[in-house]
């Protein structure tokens, strides 16, 4: 049996209408304790109305050293941006 408490990532919604944002991480024996610790560590001053916790090992992350290939497809498609299309100045509301 593993003795050390696993690592969890904490996501907090600071108020309704906003998305959950990554706040940091912490160690806890299980999900319930992770939630309680997240409350004590990250929301001591009303910073949140909702908390998500997920064990860090379940997160798959992209590799920054492969950013070139990874994000290249987005770089050479200028026609995805409105400024690519030239319209006369008389055209309003577009």
């Amino acid at each position: 049996m593993k003795k050390e408490w696993p690592l969890w990532e904490v996501f907090v919604r600071s108020k309704n209408g906003l998305e959950h944002r990554h706040f940091g991480s912490l160690h806890a024996a299980d999900a319930e304790m992770a939630l309680e610790n997240a409350r004590d560590v990250y929301t001591r001053r009303n910073e949140g109305v909702s908390i998500w916790v997920v064990e860090s090992k379940y997160i798959t992350a992209s590799n920054p050293s492969e950013n070139g290939e990874m994000f290249e497809p987005a770089k050479n498609k200028v026609y995805r941006h409105p400024t690519f299309y030239k319209l006369p100045d008389e055209v309003k509301h577009m």
């Binding site: 049996m1 593993k2 003795k3 408490w5 024996a29 299980d30 304790m33």
Partner: peptide, 9 residues
């Protein structure tokens, strides 16, 4: 710490 881990398991 050990008891908490045992409980979680």
């Amino acid at each position: 710490r050990e008891a908490a881990m045992a409980h979680a398991n």
